[in-house]
């Protein structure tokens, strides 16, 4: 048996390292996919940018200037090499005579997006956990059905509809919050928070059901286990059983769903941004696609990929950290 435990003992560090390497590998594959997908897109930036003045000569000259005449593998290597050092190159779209750096376009928008995502997460994740535990405790009761019906209704409507309903109620009928979430970088944080209140509420309603129901399901699936019966036979009250005995064993599936929803807050909220005129990264990407601004598109998609990989990595680490078999080997 000692041999077996040696293998297990060696794995905690190895498992974590393995997850990190897998994450980097995933990013590498994704970067190739992003690059090829964009390279295969119909249309050509040079032609589009030159419009009516596009002659074969001018197109070739612009392509040469932008480096678009080089073979694809070479372009990929140059792009990924620079991106790995934080240099995403310059935007194709000329802002006056000076070309803007991609990082200058993206960074302020990314900060806004992370602010919105962060505040939403701070509200939605604890709320989802508490409601999940509550519905599990009161399973099949009126409260359980009401909460499930309400959250399911919220995700069943399109996001823009939820957004407009909230706007109508909380900005127009009862003007508590601003309906416009446009902001500038030098605003004080309190004002920023007041501005984003409605988008935060909208996004909370959108992601709440999934996390709450996963928490509920993860808890209920463990309520039949022997150790729960044993806890009941110790005379523990139901809430102590759920919080003290069930929840510590349920973190792994919950963390996975939370990670998935947090990633969505970064990569999937363009509709909400548009409704509230919020300067987030989703709008930036949509604009870049319209302009065929390849460096910006590539940078955005890569950031989205990193978000997914990092959040899933975190979920994996939580799953490992809450598994006593891995943390306390034999």
């Amino acid at each position: 048996m000692s041999k077996f435990s040696d293998i297990i003992g060696g794995t905690l560090g190895a498992t974590i390292a393995n997850r990190f390497l897998l994450g980097i590998y995933t990013l590498f594959i994704v970067s190739i996919l992003i690059f090829s997908a964009i390279a295969f897109l119909p249309g050509d930036y040079a032609k589009a940018a030159l419009g009516h003045s596009a002659t074969p000569e001018t197109v070739a000259a612009l392509q040469k200037e932008l480096g678009l005449d080089r073979p694809a593998p070479e372009r990929y290597l140059r792009w990924i090499g620079h991106a790995a050092q934080g240099d995403f190159g310059s935007s194709f779209s000329a802002g006056g005579t000076q070309r803007r750096l991609v990082i200058d376009i993206i960074l302020p928008r990314l900060k806004n997006t992370l602010l919105l995502a962060g505040v939403t997460a701070l509200l939605a994740v604890p709320l989802a956990l508490v409601l999940g535990v509550l519905t599990a405790l009161a399973r099949n009761s009126f409260l359980d059905r009401l909460l499930n019906a309400a959250t399911l209704t919220a995700i069943s409507f399109p996001e823009f509809f939820v957004a407009y309903v909230l706007m109508l109620l909380l900005a127009v009928k009862f003007p508590l919050f601003s309906s416009m979430a446009s902001m500038s970088a030098d605003m004080p944080i309190v004002e920023k928070l007041a501005r984003i209140a409605l988008p935060v509420l909208t996004l909370t309603l959108v992601i709440l059901a999934h996390m709450m129901r996963m928490t509920r399901a993860a808890i209920i699936s463990l309520l039949n286990s022997s150790y729960v019966e044993c806890a009941r036979l110790k005379g523990l009250p139901e809430w102590r059983i759920v919080v003290g005995h069930v929840l510590p064993n349920a973190w792994a599936p919950i963390a996975n769903v939370v990670a998935f929803n947090l990633a969505y807050l970064v990569v999937g909220v363009v509709v909400v941004e548009v409704v509230f005129v919020y300067p987030g990264i989703g709008q930036t990407m949509v604009d870049a696609i319209r302009l065929r601004d390849v460096p910006v598109i590539q940078a955005c998609t890569l950031i989205f990929a990193v978000t997914f990989v990092v959040l899933n990595l975190l979920a994996d680490l939580i799953a490992i950290a809450t598994n006593p078999r891995l943390v306390h080997p034999k």
Binding site: Y227, C230, L233, K234, G235, L236, P237, P324, R325
Partner: peptide, 25 residues
């Protein structure tokens, strides 16, 4: 009253202790 009885006046030893102990504690 039932909770006051369980675990104090009457205790239980389960068939499979491996399953009856909570793996997390």
């Amino acid at each position: 009253a039932v909770r006051a009885l369980r675990g104090k006046e009457v205790c239980y030893v389960a068939q499979s202790a491996a399953a009856a102990f909570n793996p997390a504690h």
